[in-house]
Simulated scan of single mutants.
Amino acid sequence: MLDAFTDYLRASLLQMRAQDVSLGEEFDLVQSYLTVMQCRMGERLRWQLDIPPELRAARIPPLLLQPLIENAIHHGLEPQIEGGQLVLRARLDGQGLCIEIDDDGIGLAAAQQRPRRGNGVALKNIRERLRAAYGPEAGLQLQAGASEQGTRVRLSLPRLHPSATPAV
């Protein structure tokens, strides 16, 4: 656990100073975070990361994924006694990138009924950062899963390199 936590801290400190990072670096950071969380939750947390090797070099703004993963665990999986599964995947979508985070947690409606901290600050910050890096073409959507169970978060990035076309 200490090795994963050290890796997570080192990577997150380096990423905070960067304008953009590779998708591979961001996935590696998430993997370290999930390893730490799995030490805490044990078998209650199952996870899978799916990134095609050719997308590892794609550039994205730093620290986009970890707050979304944290939300999925905190609001979706932790409230369930049995925990659940989280899947993070990336794929090409036209000229851009689609990143999805699926969990089989309690779902959006149930999560909104629970007392919570943060009041959506992470989602608001990510939306603002996407708009600054990509303009209005970028998006962050939350979608309820089937039968109100689980949640899907979808990041739509119109280009693989945010600095290729400056946002207005």
Rank of each mutant, 00 (worst) to 15 (best):
L14G: 12
A122M: 05
L155E: 07
G83R: 00
T165V: 15
D104W: 00
F5C: 02
P52S: 13
H161S: 15
L142Q: 12
S156E: 14
R17T: 14
Q143A: 08
T165E: 15
N125I: 00
A138Y: 07
V21Y: 00
N119P: 01
G96C: 09
E25C: 06
L140H: 13
L77F: 06
S22A: 06
S147M: 12
P136W: 03
A146W: 07
P52Q: 15
E82G: 08
L55M: 14
E148A: 12
T35C: 06
I99W: 00
C39D: 12
G105D: 00
N119L: 12
I69V: 15
R127M: 03
K124Q: 08
R56S: 07
E82K: 09
R131K: 13
D102E: 10
D93M: 12
Q66R: 10
A11S: 13
H161K: 14
L23P: 01
Q80D: 07
E100D: 05
G42R: 01
R10F: 04
V87P: 01
P79H: 01
L92W: 03
T35S: 15
L142Y: 09
L108Q: 12
A146C: 09
L55K: 05
E25W: 09
A4S: 13
E137S: 14
K124R: 13
R89D: 08
E26V: 05
D3E: 10
R116N: 12
M1H: 11
L34T: 04
L65Q: 06
Q19S: 13
D28N: 14
G76Y: 05
L55D: 02
A90S: 07
A133N: 05
S147P: 02
R44P: 02
H75Y: 15
P79V: 01
L123G: 07
R44W: 05
G105P: 00
I51Q: 13
T151N: 10
L64I: 03
G107I: 01
P166E: 13
C98S: 13
A58N: 03
Q19L: 10
